[in-house]
Every structure is written in structure tokens, then in C-alpha cells.
């Protein structure tokens, strides 16, 4: 596989106007990624898929990452070439976190393999994939309204009975009326005696 700078040069030459940035990985992992703007994402992916030098015919892994502090959600595509046995080329696309604006172009029309994975990213992160043929929830039930993998998601206060609750769980158990785990009762007894 060529160096990431060279891939960037070729992509920029083939897709005019694409704004591409290289994002480094950890020093050990050595998997730098291409950050592509939303408008040109589809064209860049199409180029990588169809260009004979790359032939990225398999979109192996699609996932979302929620960067709460920076205020965006990143969708990461890992592309491999089964024909040339090379890869990965990693594409990253960023979208703002706000639910109305959180959308990126879908790559499912290029790779069927992205179909379920994009649905999963939509389900868990709320990323709307424009052009996805069948964008529904896949893991959560249809009536569910939130997106549970977002970093600011707070689970509902339906405390499940847990006898050895401590820390956060214990606090939540106490917050809920009528349910106090026995380990908390032991402590309460001790406090009363004192």
C-alpha cells in the first residue's frame, strides 16, 4: 500500500475541490486516515472503489464515533481491496452533533456491505445517511427515540434490583423511591446505631 500522502495526492487530482486532511493514528498502530468533507465524500469513495490502482472493493467496517468535546460525530469507513489484497484506506467524515444536521452521504449504493453497518450507526449515533435505501433502526426497537451510544446519553431511571450495588448504581438506587439494596440497608442500620 502506498503512503497516505500519495493517496491523498491522487484523490485530490481525481476529485477536484475535495478538501482532504490526514489524521494520524497512534505511533504504534500506523493507520493514518483521510478526513474528507461531506460534499465530496461519495465521489472520493467512488474513485477509490473504481480506480485500478486502489480497487477498494470491500467496505469492511463502518462505525461512528462521538467526539462530544469537539462537537462532531465522525463516521469511519475501513476500505480493503480484495482483488489487490491491500488496505486499509480509512475514510473519515464529520458531521455536527445536532440531530437535525447530523447527516453524511451514504456509501451503501457503492458497497452493499455498508447497509447494516450504516443502519447501526444511525441507530446508535443518530447519523442520518443520505441516500441509504432503507434507513431504519436495527438493534434498538423501532419505538425507541434516543441514540444510546452518544456520549451525552443518559439511561432512563429504571433501576434493576441489584443486591451489591455501590457507587453510581447505589446513588441511583437511592434516588428511586422504594428500592433500596440490602447492602445499603446494612449501612443504614449501622448509621442508626451510631
Amino acid at each position: 500500500m502506498e503512503a497516505i500522502e500519495k493517496i491523498k495526492e491522487q484523490v485530490v487530482a481525481a476529485v477536484p475541490g475535495a478538501q482532504i486532511e490526514i489524521i494520524p493514528s497512534t505511533p504504534a498502530a500506523q493507520q493514518p486516515a483521510l478526513l474528507v468533507d461531506r460534499e465530496h465524500c461519495f465521489a472520493v469513495a467512488k474513485f477509490l472503489k473504481e480506480d485500478p490502482r486502489f480497487q477498494m472493493d470491500c467496505c469492511s467496517c463502518v462505525t461512528g464515533v462521538d467526539y462530544l468535546a469537539s462537537g462532531f460525530i465522525e463516521v469511519v469507513y475501513h476500505l480493503y481491496s480484495m482483488a489487490l489484497k491491500q488496505g486499509p484506506v480509512i475514510l473519515k467524515v464529520r458531521a455536527p452533533r445536532e440531530l437535525g444536521q447530523c447527516s453524511v452521504p451514504s456509501l451503501t449504493p457503492l458497497w452493499r456491505g455498508g447497509e447494516f453497518q450504516e443502519r447501526e450507526a444511525y441507530d446508535l449515533y443518530g447519523v442520518k445517511f443520505e441516500g441509504h435505501p432503507d434507513l431504519r433502526r436495527i438493534l434498538m426497537w423501532d419505538e425507541f427515540t434516543d441514540h444510546p451510544m452518544r456520549k451525552d446519553y443518559t439511561p432512563p431511571l429504571d433501576y434493576e434490583w441489584e443486591p451489591t450495588a455501590h457507587d453510581e448504581t447505589l446513588a441511583r438506587a437511592r434516588a428511586q423511591e422504594g428500592i433500596v439494596p440490602p447492602s445499603a440497608l446494612v449501612e443504614a442500620d449501622k448509621a442508626k446505631k451510631k
Binding site: T164, A165, H166, D167, T169, S183, V186, E187
Partner: peptide, 9 residues
């Protein structure tokens, strides 16, 4: 403990 099943005082 990954599932948080231990409670110590």
C-alpha cells in the same frame, strides 16, 4: 470487577 459484583465496606 467488570460486572461490579463485589461490595466492600
Amino acid at each position: 470487577c467488570p460486572p461490579q459484583c463485589i461490595y466492600i465496606v
